[in-house]
Design a binder for these strands. Structure first.
Length: 582
RNA sequence: GCACCGAUGGUCUAGUGGCUAUGACUUUAGCCUUCCAAGCUAAUAACUCGGGUUCAAAUCCCGAUCGGUGCACCA
């Protein structure tokens, strides 16, 4: 039975949207080429994303390397956590997660290395759960592609598994760029790589894919959004944690959802709404789009709240295409620790605050000669003491597990009153992360229609395949067709092509075969408008414009046709306004 | 990575241990044609790859690759 996926992929292959990569050499799973129409479609999707997140929100785009150094992915957790310890049965060859198998005999299997796990399996005589056969050596399968930087292979490099880390790593520079003020956002559209064990589901799970991500750094104490009112009335289909427990989703406005605590805060709600607007605009069907909240155990431990935009696909069911998470200060803290660099922001108070505090001043002139190398640590420990700790003649502090006694005379202290102008905070990160390939596939699927088309005076019905892509994402935006293959019609058609190209409209010219066949050809690739030059054109300088979806036609002047088409594509001009009815 | 199933022009497909490997659609060239594909003429174009069995393999066997399904995996 052919399902919609097959139909869409067949069309995509045949007409130059999507091709299996390296087909010449037999192909490789998990890689797809975008053909001429697919690449243009994807580019238009990306550009609408830019319009919304870069231009409208002011989150500038950066571009960081697709190869990252090891430190970056140690900090992000991908080196340690992005791999799974696997072991295979020597008898039936079934693969298992080694850490899962030893869960009953060890308390903390996550912390064990592959070698440790091999030892544990041997010691406890753990056998294959399927057939009872012996288990092989445990090995780490890391989902990152590894490479080496420079000659000698000494320095490890990894193809990035997400674009996000490049933006976290640039945090100090970005903070300066945005002149030390929160909130600010930064975006990146680019390739990411994951060496999937077994990629299936065609274009849904790729080893190389395109992400569009925004990292928005906000003040953790203020998760409201200044433009919240612009979107608060938008209603989304929400599949919340409670909804999933009940097994039903519900439609709610963003405002309601935030007020009722379903969505954690305004900022996240705002991102959900903009995501919705983006997806609808590029051609996802609203009824096949929902927002699913991560369950508590599914969410990363540091995340406050996380929502996935999911699109319904005929074959694959609900497919995650966007993840929107409040990642708190996790990433910045992790990179701060790994790089031993502070990653924070000084936030000024509206008015300086006067505070009283107790200050301990160790006398380094005494401590230094006496304690030598330990003096610094001792001084820091002393500074943390409270006034009641300093009452005796001998003061005790614990440094590295050792109790140190310090003479009272080596320490002075006082109550200080000072003005504080602000404080240092680590921003929280809101991260909407888009899978551009999945979105591009989804909108092909949602745009794909087969209909029984019947010419008015014909008896027989034929199948019409039409991609109802929104005009602004359609790879080919207009087709210019002389009604017949005659020079007197071809010449004015060429003039129209020239005018449209000058206006930045991607246009094709086609004079092969009957005009009906050419309309169908263009329907199939989603060309929204066809302009036909006929004999009346020669008399009064008008042409017909045909609408892909309704197959209706209007007559309009050649003069100004480029503005007419431009307005139809980009300015939401209705087709009826484009000319007079035929 | 395992198991099962599959792989024939661009697309879909027929087919058999043996002649030049079906057919349709598409495409190209030309004819025809005054608005919704498949009217005429012609042309182009395929047995996934490697090995084996055989006089002979696209066909049988083995392996690989890719695709589908199930298991496992999916930050």
């Amino acid at each position: 039975m052919t399902d919609k996926y097959e139909q869409v992929i067949e069309l995509a292959k045949r007409r130059g949207f999507l091709w299996n990569s390296f087909e010449l050499y037999g192909g490789t799973a998990g890689f797809y080429d975008y053909g001429p129409l697919g690449a243009m479609l994807k580019r238009r999707v990306e550009n609408i994303w830019r319009e919304i997140f870069v231009i409208n929100e002011g989150y500038y785009e950066i571009e960081s390397p697709t190869i990252g150094i090891e430190d970056v992915f140690i900090a992000s957790g991908h080196v340690g956590g992005f791999s799974d310890p696997l072991t295979e049965c020597q008898k039936c060859n079934e693969a298992f997660r080694a850490d899962h198998l030893v869960g009953d005999v060890v308390d903390n299997p996550d912390t064990l290395s592959a070698d440790d796990l091999t030892v544990v399996i041997g010691k406890h005589n753990i056998k294959c759960p399927e057939c009872g056969g012996a288990l092989g050596k445990v090995y780490e399968f890391n989902l990152m592609f590894k490479t080496s930087i420079g000659p000698g292979g000494k320095r490890a490099g990894y193809l990035r598994p997400e674009t996000a880390q490049g933006m976290f790593v640039d945090f100090p520079r970005l903070l300066k760029f945005y002149r030390d003020r929160l909130p600010f956002g930064v975006t990146q559209i680019g390739k990411a790589y994951r060496n999937e064990i077994s990629p299936r589901q065609g274009v849904i799970r790729l080893r190389e894919f395109t992400q569009a991500e925004a990292e928005i750094f906000i003040d953790p104490r203020d998760k409201t959004h200044p433009k919240f009112s612009e979107i608060s009335d938008i209603a989304l289909i929400l599949y919340s944690q409670e909804g999933q427990a009940r097994g039903s989703s519900e439609k709610r406005t963003i405002k309601e959802a935030v007020q009722n605590g379903i969505i954690a805060h305004e900022f996240l709600g705002y991102c959900l709404a903009r995501t919705y607007q983006f997806l609808i605009r590029v051609g996802v069907s609203p009824e096949k789009l929902r927002f699913r909240q991560h369950m508590k155990d599914e969410m990363a431990h540091y995340a406050v709240d996380c929502w996935d935009a999911e699109i319904q696909s005929d074959r694959f069911g609900w497919v995650e295409v966007v993840g929107i998470a409040d990642r708190t200060d996790y990433d910045l803290k992790a990179h701060a620790k790994q790089s031993e660099t502070e990653l924070n922001v000084h936030v000024s108070y509206d008015k300086p605050v006067r505070i009283e505090r107790f200050a301990v001043k160790p006398n380094m002139g005494i401590l230094g000669p006496r304690f030598k190398g330990k003096a610094g640590k001792i001084a820091n420990a002393l500074k943390l003491l409270k006034s009641e700790d300093l009452s005796g003649e001998i003061i005790e502090v614990v440094v590295d597990g050792e109790v140190i006694q310090v003479d009272r005379g080596a320490v002075s202290f006082e109550n200080i009153s000072e003005e504080v102008h602000g404080e240092t905070i680590i921003p929280h990160v809101i991260e909407p992360s888009f899978g551009i390939d999945r979105i591009t596939y989804s909108l092909l699927e949602h745009s794909y229609f087969e209909e029984e088309a019947k010419a008015e005076e014909e008896e027989e019905e034929g199948k019409r395949i039409v991609l109802r892509l929104p005009p602004e994402v359609a790879p080919v935006q207009a087709a210019v067709l002389p009604l017949l293959t005659r020079n007197e019609l071809i010449n004015p058609a060429n003039e129209i092509v020239k005018a449209l190209r000058k206006a930045g409209i991607l246009v094709t010219f086609d004079d092969a075969g009957t005009v009906g066949r050419r309309y169908r050809r263009n329907d199939e690739i989603g060309t929204p408008f066809s302009i036909t030059v006929d004999y009346q054109t020669l008399e009064d300088g008008t042409v017909t414009i045909r609408d892909r979806d309704t197959m209706k036609q209007v007559r309009a002047c050649i003069d100004g046709i480029e503005d007419n088409i431009y307005d139809l594509i980009y300015r939401g001009k209705s087709f009826d306004e484009a000319g007079r009815k035929v």
